[in-house]
Simulated scan of single mutants.
Amino acid sequence: MTKPFVILLRNHQAGGRAAIDLFTRTAAAQRDRSYGAELERLLAEAREDLAFNERVMRRLGVPPFRALVVAARVGERLGRLKPNGHLVRRAPLSDVIELEGLIATVSVKVAGWEAAQVAGELLEGELAELEGLIQRGHSQTERLTEMHRTAAADVLGARRS
């Protein structure tokens, strides 16, 4: 197994853990929106996606890089400190920004899986499963993009007279 593939697995495992944190926070904060239940489904899918990465790591004997996992999760939490025009309560724009973060996260995940496909390290069954996960990742991006459009229209849409 090549060192770059080990690094890819570890990076995506750490990113996947941070993504679960972001999905969890976003789903909880936006549960009352029309797409709240869909965010919960996406959270469950993100957990399954991470589980795939961790199964491959275990099979190949690749231990997690704990410092990287912690750094990614701390980075996700620090991202909450962005200036949003509100000091104490949640800003309406947070819904839009969190969905943008999730769209970016899913895009990175899919890109990593596409790289893993050509690495020559996965078993035939893993490659088949990965193909399904890639397709689902594209679906996740489409669903998140639609949610983003809805949230942006609610928050940024032109005022009607």
Rank of each mutant, 00 (worst) to 15 (best):
R90K: 08
R89P: 02
A104S: 13
V74P: 01
S94D: 15
V108M: 12
E100Y: 05
T105W: 06
A72H: 09
G85D: 09
G85Q: 11
R80T: 11
R80N: 07
A115H: 08
G85K: 13
Q117V: 04
A115D: 08
T105D: 15
P83M: 01
I97V: 14
V88G: 06
G101S: 05
R90D: 09
G85P: 15
V108K: 14
A72V: 03
I103G: 00
S94H: 06
E100R: 11
E114L: 09
P83E: 03
Q117R: 13
L102Y: 05
I103C: 06
I97K: 06
V88M: 13
G75Y: 03
G79Q: 01
A91M: 03
G75A: 13
E100F: 03
R90G: 01
E114N: 04
K82S: 08
L87H: 13
L102D: 01
A72W: 02
E98N: 15
R80H: 07
I97F: 03
V110D: 08
G75Q: 07
P92G: 00
H86V: 07
L99S: 06
V106T: 15
S107A: 15
R80E: 14
P83I: 01
H86R: 14
L93R: 15
I97N: 00
G75C: 03
P83N: 10
V74T: 12
H86M: 10
R90V: 04
V88P: 01
D95I: 01
E76Q: 13
K82W: 09
V74I: 15
L81S: 05
H86A: 09
I103L: 10
A72Y: 01
A111Q: 14
E114D: 03
R77P: 00
G85E: 07
G85F: 08
A91V: 04
P83Q: 02
D95C: 06
N84C: 07
A116N: 04
E98Y: 04
Q117I: 00
L93A: 14
G79S: 06
P92D: 11
E114C: 02
E76R: 13
L78D: 02
A111W: 01
L102G: 05
S107H: 09
P83A: 07
A104T: 13
